[in-house]
Amino acid sequence: MEIDPFIFRISIFILSIFVGYYVVWSVTPSLHTPLMSVTNAISSVIIVGAIVAALASNSEKIFETPSIFGFLAIILAAVNIFGGFLVTQRMLQMYKKKKK
């Protein structure tokens, strides 16, 4: 009997939770705010779904209801991607060692 691909996806999901668990515990508490902003940025990878939704329709009917939601999601996710990574970068630039 063949294994349902869903099982593979749920395996990836559960293993990633474990990876996340160990990786996040090793994050130094002083970087918890950048951690939140960077997780925010990477969760916007949901933009891949938005792009598929936006490009689904034919070129004559670009703005049908489903693709409009896709376009809106692209804007929201793009705000997050650029905003999230840039603000993280800005914060991390400030963490410096004692200069001497």
Binding site: N40, I46, V52, A56, P66, F69, N80, G83, V87
Partner: peptide, 30 residues
């Protein structure tokens, strides 16, 4: 920063809703 992060979270949430809606309305594309 706290407000900003809260605001960004709301955008991820709404984007997820929108993608789910378009998947529901146009399942063939996915």
């Amino acid at each position: 920063m706290p407000e900003l992060v809260a605001g960004f979270h709301s955008l991820v949430g709404l984007a997820a809703v929108f993608v789910a809606i378009s998947a529901f309305l146009n399942p063939e594309a996915f």
